[in-house]
C-alpha cells in the first residue's frame, strides 16, 4: 500500500486528477483497448472531477476510449433528482467531457428487478475486461461505496439496506427530512472493488481521520470495510494533513519519507509541461523541483 500525504483537499484533488490523467494517457487506449475506470460520487472526488474537466478542456486528456463504472446509486430515487448519482455524474463530470454515453455505467436503482440489475452489472464489468483503476472515497465510519460496517469483505454488487446512521447523515441532502432519504441503495461489493487492478482512495478532513487510522494502522476488519484494501496488491491512498490526525507520528513520518517517490510518479508527466505545472509542482512537491526539466 502507498499513502500519499498532501497539504489539503485541493492538492489531493489535483494529485488524484493528475494521476488519473497519467494512467489514461499511458494506457494508450483505443477502439480495441478501453481504459476501464471505477468512479465514486460525493464531496471528496468533486474537486478531482473539476480538475479532470480542466485538463480535458486544455486538450491534455480524452475520455473517448474510457469506460466507467460507478460505485453505487440510491434505490427508487428519480434519476433526475439532484441527489441521485446519475444526476451528480452527468452534471459534475460527464457532460463536460468527451465520453461516449454508451461507455458509461451506473447502477439503475429504478430497475424492475434489482437483483438482476446487480448481477448484470458484475457481468458487464467482467465483459469489459475488469476495472483498471477504481477510485473511491470513504465515509467517517470507514465504508467504501455503500459497504457499511459489517458488510462482507468478499461482497459483490447487491441491494443494500442503509444503516440508520447513514440515513441521518444524508438527511441534510433531503431537506433535513429523514423520511425522504432513500432506505436502500445498489452498491458494488468490497470484493468487486478488490478485483480492480488498482484502487485509489481519497480521504480528506479531520472527520475522516479515525477512519484512516482504522484503515491502515489496525487489522483487516469488516467493521471498517476500507481496511480490506490492506490486502490489495495495488492500493494508493491519497489524504490531506487533516486526515492524518489520528495516525501515529511514526506512520506519518514513514509515509512522508516515501512521499518523494510517490510524487515521482507524476514528475515525468509534469516535468515536460508548462510553467503553470512547474508552479503546481513547487506547491505540491517542493523537493521534486530538482527533477524537473529546466
Amino acid at each position: 500500500m502507498r499513502l500519499v500525504i498532501l497539504e489539503n483537499a485541493s492538492t489531493v484533488a489535483e494529485w488524484a486528477a493528475r494521476y488519473v490523467m497519467k494512467r489514461i494517457n499511458e494506457y494508450q487506449a483505443g477502439p480495441d483497448k478501453y481504459f476501464v475506470l471505477g468512479l465514486p460520487t460525493g464531496s471528496t472526488p468533486y474537486g478531482m472531477y473539476q480538475k479532470l474537466i480542466e485538463f480535458h478542456k486544455a486538450g491534455k486528456v480524452s475520455f473517448k476510449y474510457v469506460k466507467t463504472f460507478n460505485m453505487d446509486e440510491y434505490v427508487n430515487l428519480p434519476r433526475d433528482h439532484p441527489e441521485s448519482y446519475h444526476y451528480y455524474m452527468y452534471n459534475n463530470f460527464f457532460k463536460h467531457i468527451d465520453i461516449d454515453p454508451k461507455n458509461v455505467h451506473i447502477l439503475d436503482g429504478n430497475a424492475p428487478d434489482l437483483v438482476e440489475e446487480c448481477n448484470n452489472y458484475e457481468r458487464k464489468i467482467a465483459e469489459s475486461g475488469g476495472i483498471e483503476l477504481f477510485i473511491g472515497g470513504i465515509g467517517p465510519d470507514g465504508h467504501i461505496a455503500f459497504n457499511e460496517p459489517g458488510s462482507s469483505l468478499v461482497s459483490r454488487t447487491r441491494v443494500k439496506t442503509l444503516a440508520h446512521d447513514t440515513l441521518e447523515a444524508n438527511a441534510r441532502f433531503f431537506g433535513n427530512d429523514i423520511s425522504k432519504v432513500p432506505k436502500q441503495a445498489l452498491t458494488v461489493g468490497v470484493g468487486t472493488v478488490m478485483d480492480a487492478k488498482e484502487v485509489m482512495i481519497l480521504i480528506t478532513g479531520s472527520h475522516k481521520a479515525f477512519a484512516l487510522y482504522k484503515a491502515i494502522e489496525e487489522g483487516v476488519n469488516h467493521m471498517w470495510t476500507v481496511s480490506a484494501f490492506q490486502q490489495h496488491p495495488h492500493t494508493l491512498i491519497i489524504c490531506d494533513e487533516d486526515a492524518t490526525l489520528e495516525l501515529r507520528v511514526k506512520t506519518v513520518k514513514y509515509f512522508k519519507a516515501l512521499s518523494d517517490d510517490h510524487s515521482l510518479i507524476l514528475t515525468e508527466l509534469i516535468g515536460r509541461t508548462s510553467t503553470t505545472d512547474r508552479a503546481i509542482t513547487t506547491a505540491l512537491f517542493p523537493s521534486r523541483l530538482k527533477f524537473m526539466n529546466k
Binding site: D80, H86, K95, D100, P101
Partner: peptide, 13 residues
Amino acid sequence: VNPERIFYDEKIS
C-alpha cells in the same frame, strides 16, 4: 430537450 435523459436513455451524442 434534456441532455441528461438523452445521455442515459438514448446514449447518443
